[in-house]
Design a protein around this nucleic acid. Structure first.
Length: 204
DNA sequence: TTCAAGATTTCCT
DNA sequence: GGAAATCTTGAAA
């Protein structure tokens, strides 16, 4: 049985956590079942100076409060009138850094994920591909916002290894879906993914 | 109070 | 390649 990620695992900057999360396992308990997925794609939102971040200029609102919370706390937001996205807060308390989980490879609970996705016929590799699909397949919605993965039994990270993968096994590109309004921050390479995975979003 | 935009996905041509 | 779906948030008025 793998050890759970504790506070110290998340107490780093967003770029470090985005790499460190790749290959680890997200665990979700839902209606007596256990869902597990291998994290294969992440994005870093690096703090109050990041123009693409909901916490740009340090503004804290009811929606993004969890970005300022203790490292390891979930930040879940609702967008486009229909989708949820799942982040893990990091950095120190009060520092609004977070990592967006963009894709997982399903490990356990495929049948439950299919039900949640409302798609009987979908391929495994598409079940948790893309941030909104991932959230839906893991029953992650606004009620999960503020949950502490270090202490929760409903949602947490299992450590498969201690360190980030070799850089040769990771891809690194600009973040996806960032508008021109973010200026130079749109092009900064803050997205990482595992090259060996077929569940990564964006390209096929 | 009003309104534009959004860390997306899916279906259409 | 393009647009629709759908509604909350945050900023302006």
């Amino acid at each position: 049985m793998s050890p759970r990620a504790e506070r110290s695992f998340f107490a780093c900057d967003a770029e470090a956590l985005a790499r460190r999360l790749l290959g680890q396992t997200l665990v979700r308990r839902f209606r007596g079942r256990t869902l597990r997925g291998r994290i294969v794609e992440t994005e870093a939102y690096v703090g109050a100076h990041d123009a693409a971040s909901h916490a740009y200029k340090g503004r804290m609102t009811e929606r993004n409060r969890a970005m300022f919370a203790d490292p390891g706390v979930c930040y879940v937001y609702f967008t486009y009138g229909m989708h949820h996205c799942f982040n893990l807060s990091c950095g120190a308390l009060g520092d609004p850094q977070a990592v967006l989980l963009r894709a997982l490879e399903p490990l356990d609970g495929h049948d439950v994920m299919r039900e949640l996705r409302d798609r009987e016929d979908i391929a495994d590799r598409l079940l948790c591909r893309g941030p909104a699909n991932l959230a839906k397949a893991f029953a992650i919605e606004r009620s999960v916002d503020g949950v502490d993965t270090v202490t929760s039994d409903e949602l947490y990270i299992e450590l498969v290894r201690r360190r980030a993968p070799r850089s040769s096994s990771m891809g690194n590109t600009p973040r996806i879906g960032i508008s021109q309004r973010a200026g130079a921050w749109r092009d900064k390479p803050l997205r990482w993914y595992l090259r060996d995975s077929r569940s990564v979003s964006g390209s096929r």
